[in-house]
Computed example of a mutant assay.
Amino acid sequence: MKKNFATLGLVFVGMLFLLVALVFYFRPHQSAPLTKPPEHGIAFLLEIDASEAAANTNLMAEVRQVMLKRFGKFGTTVFWETVSTNQARIISPMVGSQNIELAQSHLFNNAFLEFRLVHEHSEDMIKQGLTEIGYETMKEMNDLPNGRQQTSTYLVKKMPEQGLTGKYLTSAMVSRNQVGQPEINFTFDRKGTEILANVTTENVGRKLAIILDGKIQSAPIIRSPITGGRGQLTGNYTDRQALELANLLESSLPTRVKLVESKSF
């Protein structure tokens, strides 16, 4: 009997060791940035707003984290060089003009997602040509089934409500609506879910503009508090555009980033 217990104990320990080894082996690995610049490649100089960088000293570090993640998905490691509080240089071992164009259109596509409230009297104020401090006029463009384009104009807050942006997203997936067009479903992390719940609870009846890279994607009316931490982006996307955007949203930048220059060396 004792031998049986001893044997079972050894088997259990062996299985536990194997399980730990498998978890360690198959856990996600993230490539570390290069410790020195490559001899040949492409240098990208990027810039963020100086006033935002001054207000948030961790902002450039957050941008760095996202950009390293994006380049990692692209299959390359890079050297990061801080130039100033609002400028940095990314040096990649990629070569060729095609890679520069690809990086500019994909890796440096901001995919900056914001959630801003529309003014309660937006329609009347737009008709009267009025505005208000802290708000700006923005347009939403929608393609109609007859091929024409519909334009809606809103008076929208200049800043995201309670700081709700795409930096709180944990996932973004492409699905299809009832007519087969691609759309993007996204999910917030715990903090983002809490902010979205607060915003929608406090503003039932108002419109919440969903803004991507400075363009309104939609401005739905808040019918009831949204506590599940999920949302949706709809637009006239092709399958490829939707997939690329979903991929970028999963590594969404915390602020707008400007690509100042890119050059091979």
Rank of each mutant, 00 (worst) to 15 (best):
K2E: 12
N4D: 11
N4E: 08
A6S: 06
T7A: 00
F12G: 14
F17R: 09
L18Q: 05
R27H: 13
P28A: 08
H29M: 15
H29D: 10
S31A: 12
S31F: 04
K36H: 07
P38A: 07
E39D: 14
H40I: 13
A43Y: 13
F44N: 11
L46P: 12
E47D: 15
D49G: 09
S51C: 03
E52N: 12
A54W: 02
A55T: 15
N56H: 10
T57M: 05
T57R: 15
M60Y: 09
E62P: 02
K69L: 14
F71H: 10
F71M: 10
G75L: 13
F79D: 08
W80P: 09
V83C: 03
S84I: 08
Q87T: 09
S92Y: 06
P93V: 11
V95L: 04
Q98R: 10
H106N: 11
L107Y: 01
F108P: 12
N110Q: 11
N110H: 08
L113I: 05
L113Q: 01
F115P: 00
V118Y: 01
H119C: 14
H119S: 09
E120Q: 06
S122R: 05
M125L: 11
G129W: 04
L130F: 04
E132T: 11
I133G: 12
I133L: 07
G134S: 00
T137Y: 00
T137R: 10
K139L: 07
N142R: 07
L144W: 01
L144Y: 03
N146I: 00
G147D: 05
Q150F: 15
Q150L: 13
L155D: 10
K157P: 00
M159F: 12
P160I: 07
P160A: 02
K167L: 11
S175C: 02
N177E: 11
Q178E: 15
G180T: 04
G180W: 05
P182F: 02
E183I: 14
G192F: 04
T193N: 05
E194A: 06
I195V: 07
N198Y: 05
T201K: 09
T201A: 09
E202T: 15
E202K: 15
E202S: 00
E202D: 15
N203F: 06
G205N: 08
R206Y: 08
R206A: 03
K207M: 14
L208D: 02
A209Q: 11
I210N: 01
I221R: 05
R223L: 12
I226S: 04
G228E: 13
G228W: 07
G229P: 11
G229H: 02
Q232K: 13
L233E: 01
G235Y: 09
N236I: 09
R240Q: 14
R240T: 12
E244S: 13
E244N: 08
S251K: 07
S252P: 00
P254W: 12
P254I: 09
L259G: 12
S264D: 12
F265T: 06
